[in-house]
Design a binder for these strands. Sequence first.
DNA 1: ACCGAAGATGCAATCACTGCAGAACTGCAC
DNA 2: GTGCAGTTCTGCAGTGATTGCATCTTCGGT
Lengths: 229, 229
Amino acid sequence: MIVCTLSQMSISSPQDAGPPPAAVAPGLRARKRERTRRTIARVALELFDRQGFHATTLAQIADAAEVSPRTVSAYFPAKEQLAFPDAAETFDTLSARLRDRPAGERTADALRDYIAAWLRAQEEDEPERRVRRRVVDADEGLLRYERHLMARAQEAIAESIARDLGTAPDELEPRMAAASAVAIFELLTRDVLPGDAGKTVDDQLRPVERALAFIDGGIRACRADAPTG
Amino acid sequence: MIVCTLSQMSISSPQDAGPPPAAVAPGLRARKRERTRRTIARVALELFDRQGFHATTLAQIADAAEVSPRTVSAYFPAKEQLAFPDAAETFDTLSARLRDRPAGERTADALRDYIAAWLRAQEEDEPERRVRRRVVDADEGLLRYERHLMARAQEAIAESIARDLGTAPDELEPRMAAASAVAIFELLTRDVLPGDAGKTVDDQLRPVERALAFIDGGIRACRADAPTG
DNA sequence: ACCGAAGATGCAATCACTGCAGAACTGCAC
DNA sequence: GTGCAGTTCTGCAGTGATTGCATCTTCGGT
């Protein structure tokens, strides 16, 4: 069970709170902060969708969210982060899921499980997800940033795979597999999964399954090609 | 044989030249332009290495290169491009190599061949290569930009692999393989190849070989997992 | 020597981002 | 209920990248 990693380590907080709030009951203050944060991100996404990312200024976002421009910058140090308000949480959760996976479960299983859960969670807000996809696809800079965000998971995946293989995390196989995994999942989120509206989670899991097969096949082929074997 | 793609299609040129210069003798003007361009990129790299990418201003670069700041921006519309002055050429060359590869040569062969040639070319300027690596690794933004640049090759690789497999370029296998290839080669350029100084090109080609094996194994496993067989 | 295109500059305006200091607000202890 | 201490929100000013525009030079021929 992972509880604390959600609220901790968010990419930034205004005037960076000192000690972590002990991760207990969110507290009134924290809730308000979270509400403001979500409001800003929401209106930003709307504006990005309507006018484009680049054409939207921080001032407009601040107006729409009824805060000062300075506050927008305090919550989101980089403009791109406005388009991915949950990124830190998502990838921290994934890292934790891989790190704390039950003994015996392989990385591929953990990933499949995590992705399935993520897809199901996404289903609840299908329209927003589509808007976000549209917004990100429309801007080169956002695509770049998204790629960068996903790459954050790479190291965690490499460590997990290394554990499976019984090798050091800095061996070639786990690192290539992790790089490959991140790139393929990025491809899936960008091009494959968003496809049709009426897809069930199971439909979406099919290409994921093939991606996992790809990576597994790659690892085996790579090991076969290894210098000592 | 590819001759023209080198000078054409560079990411940008000041006041964007209209019709392509017929790709004949470079001409005095073009040579001067190229010299200025290289000078700017060279001094920029020096400054980045000395002070860091972020801490270096366009004004400093302009001073050091003895041009106006406006000129720096004209040659390099984005500051990041200063760290990768040959990127457009490199990836256009790769695209052309894949597109025009002789019948019967597979994508993996073309890639191996291309990379070998690239490594050999890099050998001639080992110190600069190391500096560039150090500069890029030291800045998050440059790493992001590098990733973005490499991704430009992804589509070309996917098309090439699709041709090998006899599938459409928008099938899952070629696209996953291409995404994987780009990510793995990025990993190699960043973490593996720069390792030791005294590595021969053949030494460096060994991990490349394993990467190609990985991708090939991935494709086969993915096809085996395909819905129709 | 002259003309048209290409290249280099200077200038001014936007806009993202940051440090700083003061005002407003909240949770908590007295 | 009051006041203290810590948090948040804001306004302000400054830095720097990036861009559009007008101007001045220089290059490549005619």
